[in-house]
Design a protein around this nucleic acid. Structure first.
Lengths: 229, 229
DNA sequence: CGGGATATTGATTGATTTCAATGTGAGTGG
DNA sequence: CCACTCACATTGAAATCAATCAATATCCCG
């Protein structure tokens, strides 16, 4: 639980990177969540909502990390994004969710009825603008991710991922990853083996260091940026 | 020009598939475009707006087909989507476009100042809801596309693409593709050679027929759906 | 009937996946 | 405190799918 508490402080405050949540934290939509939201604690790996469920609520991460994913019939999984404290999720749905949302680590989220947001938006144009902007920001990220998935090599994907994660954390060059290699693989459209091999490769090139499995030091951001095409 | 005129009739009327435009055509947003929009004719392959340009306008396709794409520094290209008559595009931007929009065929579009939409949305909650819904619908498509790009084989990609294009056209099993093999390749994250080979493969399996390069008959939708995982 | 762009087909290479061990680390109970 | 275990991660060898390199072939348009 401690790690997530820390995450609140770092992820929730300022300078958002690209994992999710490009828009500043203080806005009419956040206020709406603060005012009307109900809290929910979710255990690591448990589901918040499922693919194909009616999208009744919209969510915001308070602490911990949430991932959204979609499965293919044979079990192949694509993770759409990781949501850190301060990020919204579930705003994308038209009427049913197309992704499943799960907690990567133990997490707390607040949720609000979508119908309430819609009627609030009808009265408050700030809220309505925020809703559009959040969806647009999410779309922006999805587009970047499409480019990565469609056209980038394994090294480029890993580089992009590390820079993205680093951008979300504070300025430090040491990144603590909240997710497993499998999560990373399924986010980047690779296998765990390729993720592992590529990290080792970058380590051997002295581009990164791996003090422990989930801790990565970026020793050469320039090299990573170069890989980021 | 004839081909596009036909496209208006088929793409603009009813049952939207997945290329773009899940939401019905008649809505407050469409009305806003009809009322305030200015027309623009664009020649095949010419640019409507460029990546990194300030996103001053939002657009709707009247006739023809528009593609949005993003380039990597070394020229690799990812096409984000094809927009057919009735579809909106450029609604995704936060403040500058991240994709370039170009006409696939000679096209006519209408465009409206985004600031005008924002102020209209402040007064008309229908418009504001439409803006959110359009962005959400676009996001939905982007997510499907992410799954395709991240996890699917060449055959599965082609199958998904053909079903998607067929879904947009009328019920007929014959699909006329408005775009080149290169466009298809860059949309699916493949090379033209792989697109070509895969189409031939499906033809040999009697799943499709290729009466001409840009005309495809779906002889066995069930087989395609099976490939669509 | 050219001629250039676009598409197909072939041969080969190569990056990533797959299959298969082996290694590591955190948590548990003796 | 140490051994044990289970999940997770790394590493290695082989197979595979798509990319690349290289000709042809076809289509559209003047």
């Amino acid at each position: 639980m401690l790690k997530q508490e820390i995450a609140i402080g770092s992820g929730g405050t300022a300078m958002n990177g690209h994992v999710s949540g490009v828009v500043p934290v203080r806005n009419a939509l956040s206020d709406a969540f603060a005012l009307m939201g109900a809290r929910l604690n979710v255990e690591r790996n448990s589901e918040i909502y499922g693919e194909d469920e009616a999208a009744e609520y919209a969510y915001k991460v308070v602490s911990g990390v949430v991932r959204t994913h979609k499965l293919l019939s044979d079990g192949r999984r694509q993770i759409g994004g990781f949501h850190l404290p301060g990020d919204f999720f579930g705003l994308d749905a038209v009427d049913e969710h197309q992704f499943t949302a799960e907690a990567v680590s133990d997490a707390t989220v607040v949720f609000v009825k979508r119908s309430a947001l819609i009627s609030l938006a009808a009265r408050d144009s700030e809220v309505s603008k925020d809703l559009w902007m959040m969806a647009a920001a999410e779309l922006h990220r999805a587009h970047d991710h499409m480019l990565l998935l469609g056209r980038k090599s394994a090294q480029e994907r890993i580089a992009a991922f590390l820079l993205e994660m680093a951008g979300r954390a504070d300025a430090s060059d040491t990144v603590d990853l909240p997710m497993s290699r499998l999560d990373i693989a399924d986010y980047l459209g690779l296998t765990i083996e390729t993720v592992s091999r590529t990290l080792t490769l970058l380590e051997n090139a002295a581009t990164i260091a791996l003090p422990s499995t989930r801790r990565i030091r970026l020793c050469n951001r320039a090299a990573l940026s170069r890989l980021n095409a």
